[in-house]
Every structure is written in structure tokens, then in C-alpha cells.
Write a protein that binds this DNA or RNA. Structure first.
Ligand SMILES: [Zn+2]
Ligand SMILES: [Zn+2]
Ligand SMILES: [Zn+2]
Ligand SMILES: [Zn+2]
Lengths: 132, 132
DNA sequence: CAAGTAGTTGGGAATCATTGTCAAATGACC
DNA sequence: GGTCATTTGACAATGATTCCCAACTACTTG
């Protein structure tokens, strides 16, 4: 029997940040935001909380070009992301055609336990105009 | 004026390995293979060579689930991959529909300088039967 | 409310891929 | 062969993430 996770101040604080943010953010960024808000949480705990949330599919995780893992509270169900490289602003997108295409490709080649990653990166218009 | 890169034993050795391999491999794996073959090359040099090749689009690079960067000598032109998680065996795949879809999504949302990542991971049939 | 217990925290050490450093080695060109 | 800028390689440094473990605390029970 698996014990229920405890309802701790730290976990609540991390979830609260994720609810406020609308884009992807790294564990360290979330840690910094918590520190700024005075609701300090240990860095290890931030990492752990995000892992737990990601395992439970409560948040989505992806890697940026630098290899850092970014987290975001998304809506349920399988989807992909259009992410601003500079500010993290994110649009959730769906592509039923892509899903079918990927599965078909894998099946045709005899692959099992198939999963796929698909992310679109770019510069959002507010970041683009700020840069001009 | 940019100087032409030198033709060194080390660079040739790395390229030779990439030509032999048919799947993705990490810098460290390539370094190990070189060592086994007696054609030893410093680890830093392997990393540097792969970076140069990747910048020149001579090889493709992607990250596995663990965040390691894997390299592979691929055919020219934009394409994606169906990769065996266990042995790295790779099938190059193309999805013109996906390309258009991604660009359209980005444009509709006012994103610029758009790029996308799309990889399919699974277990190839030889690895699947070996596991049974 | 008090005590017991097991999940949780935090901060510092450890890990590990990757990058930086710089003196020594070596292609390219004469 | 001589010159010189590029390249190499051993080692240090970096940086995100994980590990460790003693102290802490959210729940349960009486
Ligand atoms: Zn932006
Ligand atoms: Zn999908
Ligand atoms: Zn395989
Ligand atoms: Zn593509």
C-alpha cells in the first residue's frame, strides 16, 4: 500500500509558483522566485517536488537547447508546445495527424514501446519587438 | 577570411567511427570505441570534433532521455529519427506534413526564428526479442 | 493534546557530461 | 627543413542534477 504524499508548505509553494507562471521555467528559476517571495524552499526540495509532479503527469517537462529541464503546469492530455526561447512563454498545441504519423512510422519499422518528443521553439512577438 | 580546418589524424579517426556506426552514439562511446581500436584520441578532442561536425551539419545531434547528446552521420537535408532507446539503431524519417504544420502553428502565434525538434523513440525488434 | 512514526526537508557533498586552459605537438605552406 | 597558426590532450573547472543523512514535521492514534 502506497502512502499518500504529505501536504507540506514547500510542495504547496512550488505548486503555487507553477500556477502563477504561464511559461516553462527551470528548477533553479523556480527556486529563485520562491526566494524572492520570501517563501524559501531548499533547492533539493524544489527538484524533488518537480520530479514528483512530473512523474504524476501534473506538469510537463522538456529540455531547452542548453540541456536544462524546464517545467510547466499544463492542461491534461497529450499535447506539444510552442515555446519562446527567450521568455519561456508557451502555447499548447495539438497535432492529431502527427500522432498518427509517428505511430505508423514506428510500427512500419517494428519498433515497440514508442514515444515521441515534438517541440517548436521560436521568438514570441513581444520578445521580438523588445529586441528591435 | 576563415582558415580551412586541418586534416588531422584525430579528426579523421572520429569521422571514420561515425561512418562505421549506423546508430546514434555519445561522445564518450565514440571515445571508447577509438580506444578499443587502438587509435586513441583525447576525450576533449572527440568532443571538439563532434561539435565542429555538428556545426557544419555533417552530423546530427539529439539528446536522449538522460540528457546526453548523441551524434550520428546522417544523410543531408532536414529529417527526423526513429531511434532505438537500447541500441541506438536509427531510421531516418521524413514528414512533410509535420513541417508545414509546425510552421503554420508558429506563424499563427506570431513566433519568429522557428525551429522544431521531433524524434521518435522505441525499442527495435532485435532488442525486443533479445529482452524476451 | 501528547507521543510515535514515517515521509520530508535542506544544505553540502558527490556525480557526471561537457567545456575551459594552456603548454606541447603538428599540419600547411614556403 | 623552418615558420606559425591551428590542434591536441591531460587536467581543472563548470554547472545542472542527484545523493546523503541528520534534523524536522505532517499525519495517526490514544
Ligand atoms: Zn518571449
Ligand atoms: Zn504527440
Ligand atoms: Zn535496438
Ligand atoms: Zn522537421
Amino acid at each position: 500500500m502506497v502512502e499518500a504524499p504529505r501536504n507540506t508548505r514547500q510542495r504547496r509553494a512550488v505548486v503555487a509558483i507553477l500556477e502563477d507562471l504561464d511559461g516553462f521555467a527551470s528548477a533553479q528559476e523556480i527556486h529563485d522566485i520562491l526566494k524572492k517571495r520570501g517563501e524559501s524552499v531548499g533547492l533539493s526540495t524544489v527538484y524533488r517536488s518537480l520530479q514528483v509532479l512530473a512523474d504524476a503527469a501534473e506538469v510537463d517537462a522538456l529540455r531547452n537547447d542548453d540541456g536544462e529541464v524546464l517545467y510547466r503546469q499544463c492542461s491534461a492530455g497529450h499535447h506539444h508546445h510552442l515555446v519562446c526561447r527567450s521568455c519561456g512563454r508557451t502555447v499548447e498545441v495539438e497535432g492529431p495527424t502527427v500522432e498518427r504519423w509517428a505511430d505508423k512510422i514506428a510500427e512500419e519499422n517494428g519498433f515497440q514501446d514508442v514515444a515521441h518528443t515534438l517541440e517548436i521553439f521560436g521568438t514570441c512577438n513581444s520578445c521580438a519587438s523588445a529586441r528591435a
